[in-house]
């Protein structure tokens, strides 16, 4: 049974407990020893998922100039979203990994086996969500969906820590029902909500979201593609180029000989 995260961003209060719980459970040190810099980007001083930040809360201020607010999420609003590895059903990182380090677990999550990874960074370049990154130890790291906790019957640390149950963990079909219900409830309040992460997004995300604005506002791609999408075409076009090269090369090599045979007489005069 596929398990994963359903995050209702309309219930996120931006407290970052998910970030701290993740760091604490996985014993990941703070960036720069805790001495990061004020980014100026709202309350987001983490800025990106990385080998050390497996949860990242984004803050998007949408306050109108006249500061009016007609209702919840209508008019001025401040959107918050806890970003995480999407544990895609069709995972670009898993697909491209040449060492087989990235696997799919029995919970349908995507997991990087640290004893296999050799740090080639193909996964870093392949993930369309900008999730995976290489760590100081030279290996790729990302959210493990607390695989160790799942194997012991617990839920991931972030889901447990989230005070408003914005992040919920469970069986994907059950969570999707909750998400659809929430979308319906928001639509009744005239809020343009939708689920991001159904099958249309790389086959489905095992960490999906209810959002209230377009994906790019949240720094998410609208129609992410797998890295491999253009590979076949790339090889085919290379084949064409190779053919063109072969023909012109072979002809050049032979032609010169023919020319040469023809011009042998005149050359002798030189």
């Amino acid at each position: 049974m596929a398990k994963g995260f359903y995050t209702d961003t309309t219930a996120c209060i931006g407290c970052k407990a998910c970030q701290v719980a993740c760091h604490q459970w996985n014993d990941i040190p703070a960036a720069e020893g805790g001495r990061t810099e004020l980014s100026g980007d709202s309350y987001d001083n983490t800025q990106t998922l990385s080998a050390e930040n497996w949860r990242h809360v984004k803050f998007i201020e949408q306050i109108t100039e006249d500061r009016t607010q007609e209702g919840f999420l209508q008019g001025s609003r401040w959107l918050m979203m806890s970003d995480v590895c999407k544990h895609c059903v069709h995972a670009a990182c898993l697909e491209v990994c040449p060492t087989g380090a990235i696997i799919r677990t029995e919970f349908d999550s995507v997991f990087i086996q640290q004893d296999a990874c050799n740090g080639c960074r193909a996964c870093v370049a392949a993930c369309p969500f900008g999730v995976v990154d290489i760590g100081r130890d030279g290996k790729a790291h990302k959210c493990t969906m607390c695989y160790d906790r799942l194997q012991n019957g617990r839920e991931p640390a972030c889901a447990q820590a989230c005070p408003t149950e914005s992040i919920r963990f469970g069986d994907i079909p059950d969570l999707m029902k909750l998400a659809d219900a929430r979308v319906a409830q928001l639509k009744e309040q005239h809020i343009d909500a939708y689920v991001y992460g159904k099958e249309d997004i790389v086959g489905g995300l095992n960490a999906f979201y209810v959002l209230v604005d377009e994906p790019h506002v949240y720094g998410l791609p609208e129609k992410p593609e797998l890295g491999s999408k253009n590979v076949d075409e790339g090889f085919a076009l290379s084949g064409v180029a190779a053919a063109a090269l072969a023909v012109t090369g072979l002809v050049s090599f032979r032609k010169s000989r023919m020319d040469e045979k023809a011009g042998a007489a005149t050359e002798d005069h030189h």
Binding site: G14, C15, Q19, A31, G33, G34, T36, L38, Y43
Partner: peptide, 26 residues
């Protein structure tokens, strides 16, 4: 207050997991 810190700092500005979230006074 900010969520990431507690009062004048003894319970939060000594913990890097919290300081990295809000590192500087503003």
């Amino acid at each position: 207050r900010l969520t990431e810190h507690h009062l004048s700092g003894p319970m939060s500005r000594w913990s890097p997991w919290l300081t990295e979230l809000q590192p500087e006074m503003f």
